[in-house]
Design a protein around this nucleic acid. Sequence first.
DNA 1: TAGGCCATCTGGTCCT
DNA 2: AGGACCAGATGGCCTA
Length: 187
Amino acid sequence: MKTKSRPPRRGAPPQDAEAAPGERTPDGSSPDTGPDPSKGVRSRAVRATGARTEGGRRRSGPGPGGRRDSSVQRRLESNERERQRMHKLNNAFQALREVIPHVRTDKKLSKIETLTLAKNYIKSLTATILTMSSGRLPGLEGQGPKLYQHLQQQQQQVGATLGAPEAQPQGHLQRYSTQIHSFREGT
DNA sequence: TAGGCCATCTGGTCCT
DNA sequence: AGGACCAGATGGCCTA
């Protein structure tokens, strides 16, 4: 239910003259950050602004005649920046997906799954370090104790606030492992 | 068909 | 002032 190797979007969005002139690729993606074209690119950007019924709020606009040109232009530029920002965010999500070990390689992790797995992966790594270091971290002489104290404090805080199995290093690993499997099962 | 996920638009607020 | 950030709204696509 999750991953969609989406075919190119059907039902081309209404093309109109309001699309920002010549600054986007036809699919609305940016050249460097756009999604994989093979995955079905959304072509919504062409909608640009205006009293649209699709995507975004309907404009309670200035009525007949529409926005003034300069105002429309600013909105278009703002939309473009927002798209770029979201593309960067999605790139970051993708980068995160690629460093999180997970079982379900056939399906792309959703954003919420990515964040949740990442959080627990970090916790499990922290717990592992804490367990293995025992206060002495090779190569970190001088910093080791500080790091150890820091990790220990974190563990205690988590344990105190949650009163959960996280207090035990194995708790993180267990939870992470469980989560991986639950994602695999699609639960 | 319903629900989940997503991209995009949009206006408001915060920040530089 | 202008850009970044945020959250709400909207509609498309996909899977169960």
